[in-house]
Every structure is written in structure tokens, then in C-alpha cells.
């Protein structure tokens, strides 16, 4: 599973990181900075929670 962030849509709400800080790292102004990151098996639930929290629906999870 891989994190895909639509960086046009991401507007820096930072709720992905609020839900799953171990996975969603923000840049210095609060935009999601982990486009393309591989999700470890044990963090799949956290990945889904972070993606669901995004108000812009900017995060999708792909299974390559």
C-alpha cells in the first residue's frame, strides 16, 4: 500500500497528521509531504484514518 497525495488539492489542513502522525509527515507550513510513501503493514489502519480525515479528499491509498 502506497500513499498518494494530490498536491493541488492538499490545502494544509494537517488533519492526516493529527490522526496518524507516525505516517503523515508535514512540510514546514503544514502540507502533507509523504506522496508516494510506502505504508508498512501494521500502519494500514492508520493510513486509512488519515486519508479519511482529509477535508479536501486529497489522499488516496493505492495498492500498486
Amino acid at each position: 500500500m502506497r500513499i498518494r497525495v494530490d498536491t493541488d488539492l492538499c490545502s494544509g489542513h494537517a488533519l492526516c497528521a493529527a490522526m496518524a502522525p507516525e505516517l503523515y509527515v508535514l512540510d514546514d507550513v503544514g502540507y502533507c509531504a509523504v506522496d508516494g510513501r510506502e505504508v508498512p503493514e501494521d500502519l494500514r489502519g492508520a493510513a486509512r484514518k488519515g486519508a479519511l480525515a482529509c477535508p479536501e479528499r486529497a489522499i488516496t491509498l493505492s495498492t500498486d
Binding site: 503544514g30 480525515a53 479528499r57
Partner: peptide, 19 residues
């Protein structure tokens, strides 16, 4: 949850003071 309310706005002009 999820709770994708629009109280801080959306898009470019989204409230930067939300945090």
C-alpha cells in the same frame, strides 16, 4: 468520524489559523 466540515473553508483560502 470522518467529519469533513467546511468551518475553516476549503482550498487556497482555507483558514491558516485553524491549528
Amino acid at each position: 468520524f470522518p467529519n469533513r466540515h467546511v468551518s475553516f473553508g476549503m482550498g487556497r483560502h482555507r483558514c491558516p489559523g485553524s491549528h
